[in-house]
Design a protein around this nucleic acid. Structure first.
Length: 574
RNA sequence: GGGCGAGUGGCCUAGUCCGGAUAUGGCACCGGCCUCCUAAGCCGGCGGUCCUGGGUUCGAAUCCCAGCUCGCCCGCCA
């Protein structure tokens, strides 16, 4: 509804500008700093240059030229601004009706029939997920959910690296080494990472081990069944454990594409042949092939993009090229969620796509890493916080909080609340920050249950549910509610916020950003809490009670759906 | 050395694409609110050279130039 209003105001401004013979000018539409000033505002500074009149005067002329009538309730000129007020009576009626009808679908947009493939996580299956890269699944999954809400057909995909040196090193370690020390957890990812670490160390110390690993890599790329099997087996074990960790934070991935597939199907070899035919291709002295990408603006110490090793085996980006071509064939829009360390590689990939005459490109969501106050997380140095540990700690703290507040509940119900709260807190805390900003991990922030946090929003939802439940018990309902009975500031502000959800979904989907949704959920919850504080529902007279109950029900869906778009569950009680 | 990104009260953060009305919230701190729908809440207070310096503009957190700080990258790793 706010979305419709914005579109309508845009259209009318365009019409008015045509009348004023300024059709070539596009005026910005913004939200005034204070709601009392209007719901949308159009500043007229831009026009003053063309018409050579003061913006105040133009604002008056523009306001006069704009078509009136629904859904615009009135237009006010305030200095250089033309302020638009939405027809609140209609808004109230529309919002309540739509939210109450659509329920868990409220906020979802019409189907677009566009297929989007979102690749995210794609962690090397060499060990457990750690917080340093946890933004990838969390941002990725939130974007998947938001895009779905916006009407896209979305598939999430995990690209499994079962080809490169890392995984061969892992397989070597699993085959040949018996690492000392105990795994942090009795799970394959924690157990096998020890083999991987041991093999990595050994490889650095002992050149013969390196030779053997390189030999395995060569065999792997030349389709040696046994080697493929060995590597795949350890990868699968770790991958399954990673999938388990992801499930704990409400993330499921639709499909997995194994990197080895592109080697087996000879797609990588085809790409390499095509690249070799490029005039930019050159062979290094020892036999490796490279592209000189200086003409693509890729500079540095070394402008060469090496795409085969000296023994002819492929490198990651060459395989990624085959993967991207494959992806383009399976969707209309491909989105890659990647760490910022991948930027150069993807620029090289883009250049290589151009060289082979491919026009399509992936869209990227790059994120900065989560580091520790002491610096970067490193598995080797042992300076890591595993996602599982963060989740466990969050759960235990959430349980303490629940016990403190709700000793009336059964152990089982407390546990369920603690689980939902802890997962929400972790997800929200990471996704609320724009992706390109680096995050320094601090326990007290990650486990914050107050203020700008998921539990804050979840709590509002629980309060709404509590009112509705009590209302039901008292035998009241909102049948034949009259939206006109909502007149208090807290009620109107809440209505407007609920009405904004579809617009926020649209904005987040089109900008491929999840953090504004977190911001919105917080604002909505704040407004609900204010309403809760100052406007009685069940104790109000019948007409007000019905209208307010309807509003609470609408708010409950808006809160729940904004949370669910971030993969966070909304509990009925807390 | 080069490329990319970030820099907003003590701490975290929105706004930056597309310049516009007193810069958004949270944490912390101080004060107030539970005989009334859950106080994980609400109300009030404190706190800002929007990294620095130039420039463009009627107007700059936002655009341009230069510099500083931090992160990431510049592997025949992935």
């Amino acid at each position: 509804m706010m979305r419709g209003f914005r579109l309508e105001v845009e259209r009318r401004i365009r019409e008015a500008l045509e009348k004023m013979e300024c059709a070539d000018i596009e005026l910005p539409i913004e939200i005034p700093p204070d709601a009392a000033m209007g719901d949308l505002a159009v500043p007229c500074f831009l026009l003053s240059k063309n018409l050579r009149k003061p913006p105040q005067k133009i604002a008056e002329e523009l306001a006069a030229a704009v078509r009136k009538g629904e859904p615009v309730e009135r237009i006010e000129v305030k200095g250089p601004y033309v302020n638009f007020f939405i027809d609140l009576e209609k808004l109230k009626a529309d919002v309540l009706k739509e939210a109450l009808d659509k329920r868990e679908k409220y906020g979802s947009l019409e189907k677009k029939n566009i297929r989007i493939l979102v690749e995210h996580t794609s962690a090397n299956p060499t060990g457990p997920l750690h917080v340093g890269r946890a933004r990838n699944p969390l941002i990725g999954d939130s974007i998947v959910r938001i895009l779905r809400m916006a009407g896209y057909d979305v598939t999430s995909e995990f690209y499994v690296n079962d080809v490169g040196k890392q995984v061969v090193t892992l397989a070597y370690g699993v085959q040949n080494l018996q690492p000392e020390g105990e795994a942090d957890r009795e799970r394959d990812d924690y157990r096998l990472v020890l083999n991987y670490q041991a093999a990595s160390r050994l490889m650095e110390e002992d050149p013969s081990v390196l030779d053997e690993i390189n030999g395995m890599l060569y065999d792997l790329e030349h389709g040696d069944e046994k080697t493929i099997m060995i590597v795949r087996e350890s990868c699968e074990k770790i991958l399954n454990a990673i999938i388990g960790s992801l499930r704990e934070i409400n993330i499921t991935i639709d499909q997995f594409t194994w990197e080895s597939k592109f080697i087996q199907e000879r797609k990588v070899a085809e790409i390499i042949d095509r690249l070799k035919k490029s005039p930019m291709c050159k062979q290094e002295e020892d036999g490796a092939y490279a592209l000189d990408l200086g003409s693509y603006g890729i500079h540095g110490k070394e402008t060469d993009f090496i795409f085969t090793r000296k023994d002819g085996t492929s490198l990651y980006t060459s395989r990624d090229l085959a993967y991207h071509l494959d992806k383009f064939g399976r969707c209309d829009i491909a989105i890659d969620v990647l760490g910022e360390d991948q930027k150069l590689g993807q620029m090289q990939l883009s250049a290589a796509l151009d060289i082979i005459g491919e026009k399509r490109r992936a869209e990227y969501i790059f994120y900065a890493f989560v580091s520790l106050p002491e610096g970067r997380m490193s598995t080797r140095k042992g300076t890591v916080v595993y996602l599982d540990d963060l989740l466990d700690e969050a759960l235990s703290r959430a349980m303490t909080e629940v016990k403190k507040r709700r000793e009336d509940l059964s152990e089982e119900r407390m546990r369920r609340i603690a689980k939902v709260v802890s997962v929400g807190a972790v997800r929200y805390n990471i996704v609320r920050i724009q992706a390109e900003k680096q995050i320094v991990f601090k326990w007290e922030d990650a486990l914050n249950f107050e203020g700008n946090s998921a539990p804050f929003v979840q709590y509002s939802h629980a309060r709404a549910c509590s009112i509705l439940k009590k209302g039901l018990e008292e035998g009241t309902d909102w049948k034949d509610y009259d939206p006109a009975k909502l007149v208090k500031k807290q009620e109107l502000d809440l209505v407007k916020a609920i009405a904004s959800l579809p617009m926020i979904v649209d904005d987040c989907a089109e900008s491929r950003k999840a953090h504004p949704m977190a911001q919105y959920a917080l604002e909505l919850a704040t407004l609900f809490n204010q309403f809760y504080q100052f406007v009685p529902v069940l104790r109000a007279d019948e007409a007000e009670r019905k209208a307010r109950l309807a509003l609470v029900e609408a708010a409950r869906w808006a809160l729940g759906n904004s949370l669910s778009s971030l993969g966070i569950e909304a509990p009925d009680e807390m």
